[in-house]
Amino acid sequence: MTLELRNLRKSYREPGGRSVPVLNISEFRMGDGEQVALIGESGGGKTTLLNIIAGITTPDAGDVQIGGVNVGQLPEAIRDRFRADRIGYVFQTFHLLPAFTALENVLLGMSFSGKKVDRQRATQLLERVGLGHRLTHRPGQLSVGEQQRVSVARALANSPVLLLADEPTANVDPANQQLVLDLLRDSCREHQVSLLLVTHSLDVSRQFDRVERLADFNRREALA
């Protein structure tokens, strides 16, 4: 599904009351099924951008259109359901629920969507990220890289149309990095899913046809 950002602006307010500009994007587009690697310096606003696209963070101004739908103008409850049904998000800090096992965390991703909770599919996804032997472990009993892969499986669970991945391979060894990357890219390719993937790794970014540097289209200094 297409993604279109227009005149997007976001600043954070510092404790002192000063405003810190983070995002100022006049235009950004992704085609249906397109895969884009997003790179940029730390603190550049990549995570903030992904959160705005997912509807988790509200921008100060501007539009986010997903598949032609202006997400920011949807009533909140419908936007929540839209997020559950259409968007997969591999969070930079995973955001797994500590009380739930790996399998349950994946199932939880399915619970809030309109789709059926499919245990078999959840199990298969975990097997595909190499965690078939860790289904009943809680996040606290998993290594950081394992937690990250649970998060990847959860993001794919609802068959999203747009996949946001915030450094999904930052914590895994090279072999697993490629496994996770292939899984994400192959799943997206199979179902015409658009993929926006943040990475610091050259190994990762050079596999993408389109690589975008955030600083190139984010004129944040113009906001100040």
């Binding site: 997912a54 988790i56 909140e76 409850a77 929540d80 359901r81 839209f82 997020r83 559950a84 049904d85 968007i87 998000y89 969070f91 955001h95 797994l96 629920l97 500590p98 009380a99 939880l108 991703g109 619970s111 809030f112 969507s113 959860r154």
Partner: peptide
């Protein structure tokens, strides 16, 4: 934080 995670996964406020 757990509640926020569920919301981020698409849970509604009412949920």
């Amino acid at each position: 934080r757990e509640i926020a995670i569920m919301r981020a996964l698409g849970a509604r406020r009412s949920t």
